[in-house]
């Protein structure tokens, strides 16, 4: 059996994982009191009506009086057919709210991810090739700075300097400008810069250390003895094995920042993206929207881990597909 069978099994497993997550979230939601029913009961009590009757009426209205398994099937079908319910605060379907938020998140996430994945390993390997030179020390300094400073704080500082003092960028994100326009590039530069400095540090350090280890490997000596140029040695013989442990760090790290730091950055810069949507939904107790955003982040994480496992097998042929 080869890689194809492994990929099929791995994708199937990812689907099972998402199903388990969907089931657990449903279980928690069902067990928790429904805010709409609670509200109806409170209202009835205050108006001098029968709270129990009001509860039944509301449950019937929300179709909560059906048997559990029917409600579960309904919910699961809803999740997989993208019918994620109605957002009360946004007055639109949850999916529509998420799509419009995703539109803004993608605008900074895609360039941010590409820059991190490109610059991180390259600078790391370059550092390893020039270990203990001033360039290496400079790169290390930048890495630790980005790693140490909280993203939201760095964002506020930059906003103060470039937005308030120099007035080069708008203080509040302008949703009206076209995606591919100079204004949009200008207003996204700082958020992307903040995120890249935050994510690149760990990746640079990991790739530097891994590459430094491989730079002294016997196979590098073989390549040198074959007459291969130093550039090619790093570009082909060192980067490839370096990417194997790095891909783990990278996917995990990018996902953590995607779900965590991006929220703070969106709040600081006023970008109405996914992180901001989740944040507002939590504050406003919009259950459907919270659930929808959570599910979305879960799917992103599952797909990220799936990609990581697949990338693994391509990068390091020694990883066996048989027993996993």
């Amino acid at each position: 059996m080869g890689m194809e069978w492994y990929i099929v099994r791995r994708v199937a497993w990812a689907a099972i994982v998402t199903f388990i997550i969907v089931t657990i979230t449903w279980g928690l939601m069902t067990a928790a009191p429904n805010p709409q029913v609670q509200q109806a009961v409170t209202q009835a009590a205050m108006d001098g009506e029968n709270p129990a009757e009001a509860e039944e009426r509301m449950e019937a209205q929300l179709q909560l009086d059906r048997p559990l398994h029917v409600r579960f099937m309904d919910y699961v079908v809803g999740v997989y057919t993208l019918e994620w319910g109605w957002s009360n605060t946004r007055n639109q379907p949850v999916t529509a709210a998420l799509v419009s938020a995703l539109y803004y998140t993608v605008q900074y996430s895609v360039p941010w991810t590409i820059l991190t994945v490109l610059i991180g390993p390259i600078v790391g390997v370059y550092s390893a090739a020039n270990q203990y030179s001033w360039r290496d020390h400079a790169a290390t300094g930048v890495a630790f700075f980005g790693y140490a400073i909280p993203n939201f704080f760095f964002g506020i500082i930059l906003l103060l300097i470039f937005g308030v003092q120099l007035e080069w960028i708008p203080i509040v994100y302008q949703t009206g400008v076209p995606v591919f326009s100079v204004q949009n590039v200008i207003q996204l530069t700082i958020p992307i810069f903040v995120l890249v400095t935050g994510s690149i540090g760990a990746i640079m350090r990991v790739s530097r250390n891994e590459a430094a280890e491989y730079a002294n490997a016997d196979f590098v000596k073989t390549a040198k003895a074959k007459g291969v140029s130093t550039y090619r040695i790093y570009a082909r013989h060192v980067i490839r094995p370096t990417m194997v442990p790095l891909s783990t760090t990278m996917v995990g790290y990018l996902l953590a920042i995607f779900t965590g730091s991006s929220l703070l950055v969106e709040v600081v810069f006023g970008i109405p993206g996914l992180g901001r949507t989740l944040y507002d939904a939590v504050v406003a107790q919009d259950t459907n929207l919270v659930l929808g955003s959570t599910l979305f982040f879960t799917f992103v994480a599952t797909i990220g881990n799936l990609l990581q496992d697949l990338v693994y097998t391509v990068l390091d042929p020694r990883i066996s597909f048989e027993d996993r």
Partner: peptide, 27 residues
């Protein structure tokens, strides 16, 4: 260095001690 590279693996070839690690495991 570039002139030496032509000789390395060209007119003077090397074989090393530990064949386990002397080949790149990724290729």
């Amino acid at each position: 260095e570039s002139e030496l590279r032509e000789i390395r693996g060209g007119r003077i070839a090397h074989v090393f001690q530990n064949p386990q690690d002397a080949l790149n495991h990724c290729y």
